[in-house]
Design a protein around this nucleic acid. Structure first.
Lengths: 280, 280
DNA sequence: GTTCCGCATGAATCGATAG
DNA sequence: ACTATCGATTCATGCGGAA
């Protein structure tokens, strides 16, 4: 039986990551401190300084990510002075200059967004999950995150429509049998780039929102078992906790001692012991 | 009794708008031809030329928009060479330099997005609805888009299929969709900045780029009756059609004669019917 | 008059092939 | 090398006709 390692570091990821060799991680997923938010804990990075601050760290992430790995950045700009601040979209442009490929932007549609009312805007119910890659070819395990299919298959598959026959006849070779047969026993469809976290809705018994659902979905999608996941702003350790449950090795970094302690608490004792061995 | 006017112009909005005085419109809402899409009809603008092309026109829009008016831009970047193209986020930055305030970004979550499967990405199920303003203070009628509770909700709920009830996990948030079950115990709810709508792809006569519910929602939110709405890329006339039904005056512009004819047809007819009904 | 079901069709994207 | 065209893939929706 293989070991699952979960390693929590205390410190700035800028420095911690410099000790890691290049091409180490299969997935980097993180929700960094947003500009000027959590200022009481992180000391607050001013929105205007955010891009500069982040680029130093994304440089290291680019180095330690495997060529076929993926970086998922969960982030949302805050409203400053009545406007949405531009540091996030500036960051995308700068990261591309740094060498990242901006492959996709997923939307996390938040189930329970913060309540409130403002004269000039509504509640903010979504966040960006920006997907960056080093190369055009990267590991993606789409089948791992398939969702239940809609009604159409049940009716459509009873009898092929004319359209289906025509479209299928246009294919080269063996007629329409091949593709339709793919549908015959399929009850699942591929998801979209909007995360409703609908996969959890299959279990209607649990209506509670799991904050772990976000890293869980991306870990499923971009890694396989025993791969190595990094969260450079791990906070209370959610990413490592989820990674461990999914049998992925993980590294979590945070600058705050209280988060460091909390994260180590949240990982199992076994993990901790493994970490001790590894530290030697 | 007031008159509702809907004027359709044939031509490039860059030139047509130059004949309008400044501070004319209460709301500009449009879905311009996306880069390289609909090239067969619009000729297509190359992604790399898109920002430059659009800025000339947004300059005019800035001029003709009232100081307390709003500009809603429905747009989405396409995938080019395995990456999301950056012309949209570049456009945001450039429009701010032009004098626009980037107030908010709404998400249109498309329930029925285009099917397909690719090795490196999922189906694209969302588009941006970027809100720009000239001034920090602008007209916003939040109560107009609150979701009322009434018989309509009950009948709507009754018509839901079992599958819909199970699968549709949409929030109260959007104010759209079928999640009326959440409304049962409340009178009204404020929406969020995520709109969950289906595209209307099956209308043979005119394939509108966005469903009527989209401009309808923003027209409700940012204008009152008898205000003046502009759509500089009006296409088949959806915006003017909706505006008219909601008793807003409107101006629609498009470069294509077939759209011009189609829009005049749609708008005129509705205008007449509305008038007759209203006259009673 | 409901409900059900067949049906066409989308702001799509990628990879291969052709010019 | 670089662009243009084409085939393959895939799923939710509402209309219209049928039950």
């Amino acid at each position: 039986m293989k070991e699952i390692r979960s390693d929590i570091y205390l410190g700035d990821c800028l420095e911690i990551l410099s000790d890691f060799p290049e091409n180490t991680f299969d997935l980097i997923i993180t929700s960094p401190p947003y500009a000027d938010s959590r200022s009481s804990t992180y000391g607050g990075i001013k929105p205007d300084k955010y891009v500069e601050w982040f680029l130093l760290r994304s440089q290291q992430m680019l180095r330690v990510l495997k060529p076929d790995g993926t970086f998922v950045l969960n982030i949302k700009e805050k409203a400053v002075n009545g406007e949405r601040h531009t540091y996030v979209i500036e960051l995308i442009l700068e990261m591309r200059k740094q060498g990242w490929l901006w492959t996709e932007e997923f939307i996390w549609h938040k189930k329970n967004c913060f309540p409130g009312k403002w004269p000039n805007r509504f509640r903010d119910a979504w966040e960006r999950c920006l997907q960056f890659n080093k190369e055009k070819k990267f590991n993606m395990y789409q089948e791992a995150v398939m969702v239940p299919m809609g009604d159409w298959a049940k009716t459509r598959l009873k009898r092929l429509s004319v359209t289906d026959k025509i479209r299928d006849n246009s294919k080269v070779g063996s007629g329409f049998g091949k593709n339709v047969s793919n549908w015959l026993n399929r009850d699942k469809a591929y998801p979209t780039n909007v995360l409703r976290l609908a996969t959890e809705c299959n279990n209607r018994k649990h209506s509670a929102v799991f904050p772990e659902a976000l890293p869980e979905w991306f870990i499923k999608l971009f890694t396989k078992e025993y791969d190595l996941v990094l969260d450079p702003f791990v906070g209370s350790g959610t990413t490592c906790h989820v990674a461990q449950q999914m049998r992925r090795n993980s590294v979590g970094i945070d600058t705050l001692r209280e988060f460091y302690d909390l994260a180590k608490q949240n990982v199992t004792q076994v993990q901790f012991e493994i970490f001790e061995e590894w530290a030697k």
